[in-house]
Design a protein around this nucleic acid. Structure first.
Lengths: 115, 115
DNA sequence: CTATTATTTTACCATTAGGTTAATTAACTA
DNA sequence: TAGTTAATTAACCTAATGGTAAAATAATAG
């Protein structure tokens, strides 16, 4: 639970229940009970998961009558996407011989890259 | 520490030391001492971080004399990239009015009960 | 006001995570 | 052979996580 933004996001995503909640929110706003329904888990457990998601800013919450509707807030996912960008070259097409590539990098003789 | 693949990867990435280790490995293979050097942390702590990264298959390890060199294994990052793909539409250009979009989704076919 | 529904808060518990120091194993070197 | 360097294991500590059940809040309905 380091307080930096990226750690908080990754750690929020490291739980399957929370990822399922996010997935469920891709079809629109949901109440806590709605979100809880698919899970064999107490309400307080769901409340806690929602708190984690909210602190990570992956969801936002409103108030409508006695409901506290949740909706997706995708920005932190965008940050993760950006972070992961620095590694994308390591799995993309031309680098299927990663070991050789890394060895080259290490040797410091990295010049002609593959197409 | 749920055992599903994605949770393991996210949880491995949720620590800044481990992300720094991965970043350090983008320039090639490193020994444990090499990796430990930038951190104000004991060797056993680094060993533990490496174990987490290895279990998540984010690194691979070899043996060379008394060294156990580490190298990047990017596949799990690719999986995360794929997972995040389902959310990409929520932050891309045309969806800068996300709230409206989600509200639409929720209403299904605009059965207006909105204020 | 009372009752009901939705959600959160308050303890509480077991397990895991991230760190430490001290001891151990593995391989090289003089 | 003994000594040094590289890394791991063992034992331990503290704090955080993910769950529970029971009580407390909040808003609506009768």
């Amino acid at each position: 639970m380091p307080s930096d933004h990226l750690s908080q996001t990754f750690s929020a995503l490291a739980d399957p229940t929370r990822r399922a909640i996010l997935a469920s929110l891709t079809t629109g706003e949901k109440t806590v009970s709605d979100l809880a329904h698919p899970f064999d888990m107490s309400m307080p457990a769901i409340t806690k998961h929602l708190k984690v998601l909210e602190r990570a800013r992956l969801i936002e919450r409103g108030r409508e009558a006695q409901y506290r509707p949740c909706r997706l807030h995708p920005e932190p996912l965008k940050d993760i996407d950006t972070w992961i960008g620095q590694y994308r070259k390591f799995w993309e097409a031309s680098f299927d011989r990663l070991e050789d590539y890394l060895q080259e990098l290490q040797a410091g003789k990295k010049k002609g890259d593959n197409p």
